[in-house]
Amino acid sequence: MGIEDAPSGFLLTTVENFAGYMRKASLWPVTFGLACCAIEMMAAGTSRFDISRFGMEVFRASPRQADLMIVAGRVSQKMAPVVRQVYDQMAEPKWVISMGVCASSGGMFNNYAIVQGVDHVVPVDIYLPGCPPRPEMLLNAILTLHDQIQAEPLGVNREEAARAAEAAALEATPTSDMKGLLR
């Protein structure tokens, strides 16, 4: 029984907090630079921005030792299976940041060669705009992800949250029917 299967009870919130704190403070990104955004990602590791202040100094070369994938750069159709394989090889729990507009939506490359958003391939937790985003923006995205990890429910709570999210998604208007102010 792993920590994911923790039983419900009054202790669980404390456990959640603790586990969240541990997890967020030791995120290890996998080295996964695809294009120009990777340069900014590397810059985030330099002493000026110093990503190690958040316990993330080790960009692991092996997905098995990493729990955060920063998809930095446009994902070409050819690269998509590789992205997915690296993601699959990462151990749970794992998170994905889609860095830059090309990874997030294809950006200005609205063409046949580029996957129009890496979320077609892997589930994305945080989208980060910018072309490329400056290192502060990446740090901001990572901190946003930290908050999300800190607040992540476990065990039964997690199941409940997942169910609620699924029910909400079923009820929601399909994206294609969302009109907003458009007429």
Partner: peptide, 15 residues
């Protein structure tokens, strides 16, 4: 202002 990251695609469309 550059702090723009967010968890959903929809939320990244600014009205």
């Amino acid at each position: 202002d550059y702090e723009l990251a967010g968890p959903t695609r929809r939320g990244m469309i600014y009205e």
